[in-house]
Nucleic acid binder design. Sequence first.
DNA 1: AACTATACGGAGACACTCTCCGTTTGGCAA
DNA 2: TTGCCAAACGGAGAGTGTCTCCGTATAGTT
Lengths: 182, 182
Amino acid sequence: MRADAQRNRDRIVEVARALVRAKGFDAVSMDEIAKGAEVGPGTLYRHFPTKESLYDAVLEAWAGKVNAAVDSALALDAPAREQLLTWLTDYAAMLTEHKGAAARITAALGDPGSPFAAKCTTYINANQRLIDGLDSALRPGVEAIQISRLVGGVAAVVDNSELPADSMAPMLAIVADGLLAP
Amino acid sequence: MRADAQRNRDRIVEVARALVRAKGFDAVSMDEIAKGAEVGPGTLYRHFPTKESLYDAVLEAWAGKVNAAVDSALALDAPAREQLLTWLTDYAAMLTEHKGAAARITAALGDPGSPFAAKCTTYINANQRLIDGLDSALRPGVEAIQISRLVGGVAAVVDNSELPADSMAPMLAIVADGLLAP
DNA sequence: AACTATACGGAGACACTCTCCGTTTGGCAA
DNA sequence: TTGCCAAACGGAGAGTGTCTCCGTATAGTT
């Protein structure tokens, strides 16, 4: 890639990240991002063929954080319930970090054609590692994608309704208790 | 209201209901509805100032169904877990009956200014009656709006991802077990 | 039959995503 | 350094959506 193209690409992602953080994905237009990054719309679309593919780039850094969070939860010297709840809370917090991310990523969980497909497998794998790690403490038959969807659903609701972050806690507690073996 | 206006209003809602059922709320445009009802866009917007207010009219008939469902679940001669699961399943099924309804209604749960506010209180009241009916079988401190959000979240995910209806069952089972007293 | 409040319809304002294509420029080779 | 050209740029505008304004038509009353 030519040097100017690389510079522009980086600036676009940077500007987009700031705008999305401030106003939410849906409330930011591509023109606005282009203007902020001082490029034309044509340039923007040369780098990112759709708005969602730009969003995917904005969320890039997250995948690593997810794996770190599941590791640190499993490393806790605590009962399974607390490990589980710690992870669910961290996971939900990451999903609500950027407005609009939770619903989008969670909706894409089963769709390999989505621009978020790579992130989805990261999330599902993280939940699978959790299941493997917690072993027999969980109810039998629970699947990683179900956990992803449950927590994603809760996070999406809280995100959409613009609720305070701590309103997730009681709902995640219910999910956690439901996930533990009867 | 003048007779022709009433006729047009009824036809608009009828056409909108059919189109939304077939294609989902987001995929149907107001122009399309206007054409289908053989009125101009101006007439459409005279009756329904926003697209969402039209959707509210489309969903009108539901409120009664919700109350009937919670009654019939509570009337079951069965353990609390089964009553609870029956209701959650019925409730989720109603939310996914029209594409796009689950996320919209659930997002509006705490917002009195939403066009769906009336429906939201119906849903919350239904869950409150469930809590009162199941009495001490539920975990202490659980709130009606939390149940509404949990089930709404699950329904929204399934709706968004276009999953088969039966994929909700295991997730609702987890929620149900989490809701029952430990 | 005339009159008026009410309702109608459609052109178009405005916003948004995305495309096409003529113009400019970075980086390499002579 | 200079010249070349593939790569990148920018912006006008196509296409689609929600919603508005206002001149026209009509229902219902007098």
